[in-house]
Amino acid sequence: MKIPRFSRKTLCVPYAVFLLFFVIIPMLIILFYAFTDKEMHPSFSNFIRFFSDPTKLSTIVYSLVIALITTVACLVIAYPVAYILARSTLKKKFVILMLFVLPMWINFVLRVNAIRELFNLLTSLNGMEWLAGANYFKTVFGMVYDFLPFMILPLYTTMLKIDNSLYEASADLGGNAFTTFTRITVPLSMPGIMSGVTMVFLPSMTNYVVSDMLGNAKVTIIGKFIYEYFGTDWHMGSMVALVLLIVVFVSTWLSGGFKSEENVRGTNL
């Protein structure tokens, strides 16, 4: 029996088909719906309605701020952890890393529910009553908890690849710990930071399950709007989705996410 041989071009076909049907065509459909009205006539009314509505613009701002705080908090927590893990000579590093990543293996809704119950417990304690109304705090907390592994992993894998001789060279040339950190660790872990930021920032703008369950549905982020509009008005929903897409595109572009160089190596999850 002859072993069939495929050319590289043929091997691309399945993915090209996937791209076409699940990425490109849906995008075009969103674009189509965003710029049509109920009768399917071309229309800018959704566009005008979106940008003349202070509520929607405010929600974008709120979502951005929530996502930004989440990202910064994740970075602040994850960076030292990743650094210590990558630089330590511990034999069971793997175990510690797993402890951080393990929650990802448990269903996300279950985890958010668990956090909700924990907050309930805390709220019932003396002096913790303020938690009941702290919806924004609880939302951000839930997001940080949920997305932390996505920050730790890329950071850890990039830092692991930093050659130890660079640290030795830095020490040889008289660099103190601070200089070594700012001149070697930070620049060389930049790809990891970037991919971590991308992976945390973008989903936390739309993850309305967290804001509904922990923010008592009193915190509204842009993802919730999209969900609600798709219940009643697909055209407006598509417009909101499109605007979000553009915001995401611009922020990814600005943070250098499209560089096709060695930067991408940090993203291997």
Binding site: D53, P54, T55, K56, L57, S58, T59, V61, Y62, A217, K218, T220, K224, F225, E228, Y229, T232, D233
Partner: peptide, 20 residues
């Protein structure tokens, strides 16, 4: 349409125009 707009105004926080 009007009631959905009302609902989104209620559910989301609206900033002042100058803040935006």
């Amino acid at each position: 349409v009007r009631i959905n707009e009302l609902w989104s105004r209620v559910k989301a926080e609206t900033l002042d125009a100058w803040a935006i």
